[in-house]
């Protein structure tokens, strides 16, 4: 498996391709008025992605909550009310 993948992936060209979004962020970061460029990218240029990240984390935690809620040890039967 590893050999197959190696034969496929190694000959690929991994040189940095020029994406203009980097220059765009670096060149005019002032008009957002935030000195921390990383935070400005995270919450202002690409706030939609951050919204996606937050929702992904939200659903992940609620998935774990729903999955693991039912499995209680019998000893702890009495506070079943808290489950609701």
């Amino acid at each position: 498996m590893v050999l197959i993948l190696a034969s496929i992936l190694l000959p690929l060209d991994y040189s940095r391709e020029r994406s203009d979004s980097y220059e765009h962020y670096v060149s005019n970061w002032e008009d957002v008025g935030i000195s921390n460029v990383v935070a400005s990218i995270l919450t202002d240029w690409r706030a939609y992605d951050t919204l996606g990240e937050t929702v992904v984390l939200f659903t992940a935690v609620y998935g774990v909550y729903i999955l693991l809620r039912g499995k209680r040890k019998e000893k702890e039967g009495e506070d079943g009310g808290e489950k609701g």
Partner: peptide
């Protein structure tokens, strides 16, 4: 200076 960035940061922080 950030405007909604500050609000967003606070809410993201609370949520996480």
């Amino acid at each position: 200076s950030g405007g909604t960035v500050v609000l967003l940061n606070i809410l993201i922080g609370l949520e996480i």
